[in-house]
């Protein structure tokens, strides 16, 4: 297999630092070759596309909307400050942040509940029940709300009967409902993984040292579940920021979010450089968040 393996036994020589270094280098190459297909692929179809987004965001717009790699300018980026655009960016940030908070609050209570069921079999069963919607088609799950919120749907009828709400479809609350519904499982799973791993004797120790239930939770349980909170928040916040399907199906003209706005640039608006700049902005937020995650992950692990 390797050169060393084929060497006849009689030629084995005693170890020296050079031979060891060579053996180590051989191991490294072996590892490198294993990773080559995946990383070559990801470089070709992820990293380079990621770079090209930024390149095109400085290009100028051709007649068909396609970018022309000439006449480099900052037009697309300065366009981000236009009132209409900044309204959409602001709205998207607000929607993504609020959705993350809602998912976190509901998801935490939910994950905590599952993780504290005494029987392992109960926990497993409940977890499977979470996995099913997690694996189910996102489009179908969003579409389901389209039916539920329709003008003659039951939810609208209940709202109108009680006078609490009217027709929700194509409004911001409908978008929120859809996003919450769509992303909740992404929050629950990492939270559950983190909470289930907690050594409850630590909480008991806290209680033993005169911490009240609330204090024990705030000072022990919550910090210990931090990795799950961070992972879940990223898994909800970033995709929410670029959400497209949900606002497209459940929202209306007044609820345009970044995702729809970007798609428009590649469709009706025919402005690819601007679409690239918008995508680039999301990527910057994503990269920063990822770095933050690995930083904190290194601290908590």
């Amino acid at each position: 297999m390797t050169m060393l393996d084929q060497r006849p036994d009689s030629q084995q020589e005693a170890a020296n630092p050079e031979l060891e270094r060579r053996a180590e280098r051989r191991e490294s190459w072996r590892g490198f070759f294993h990773a080559v297909p995946a990383y070559a692929y990801l470089i070709a179809f992820f990293v380079l596309p990621l770079i090209i987004v930024f390149v095109f965001s400085f290009a100028s717009r051709g007649r068909t909307g396609r970018p022309i790699l000439d006449n480099w300018n900052l037009d697309a980026w300065t366009k981000l400050t236009e009132p209409l655009v900044s309204t959409i960016v602001g709205r998207s940030l607000f929607v993504a942040a609020l959705n993350t908070v809602l998912c976190l609050i509901i998801g935490y209570a939910f994950a905590y509940w599952i993780a504290t069921r005494p029987k392992q079999s109960t926990r497993t069963l409940l977890l499977i029940l979470v996995l099913i919607p997690f694996w189910s088609n996102f489009l179908v799950r969003t579409y389901a709300w389209r039916i539920l919120l329709d003008s003659d749907g039951y939810i609208t009828q209940i709202g109108e009967f009680t006078g609490l709400w009217g027709r929700m479809l194509f409004t911001l609350p409908a978008v929120f409902l859809g996003l919450l519904y769509g992303f909740l499982p992404f929050m629950v799973l990492p939270l559950y993984a983190a909470i289930e791993r907690i050594d409850w004797s630590l909480v008991e120790a806290g209680r033993d040292l005169y911490a009240s239930g609330t204090r024990a939770f705030l000072k022990i349980t919550l910090p210990l579940s931090r990795p799950g909170i961070i992972a879940g928040s990223i898994l909800v916040f970033i995709p929410s920021l670029g959400a497209y399907v949900t606002p497209d199906i459940l929202g209306g003209a007044k609820t345009t979010l970044l995702g729809n706005f970007i798609v428009t640039q590649f469709g009706a608006a025919r402005n690819w450089p601007f679409g690239s700049a918008l995508s680039g902005a999301i990527l910057i937020v994503m990269v920063l968040t990822t770095i933050l995650y690995f930083r904190s992950g290194a601290r908590t692990l």
Binding site: G242, I262, F266, S279, T289
Partner: peptide
């Protein structure tokens, strides 16, 4: 974690 739209554009 990348949003679908961004990956699609890329």
């Amino acid at each position: 974690i990348i949003p679908d739209v961004t990956m699609a554009v890329m």
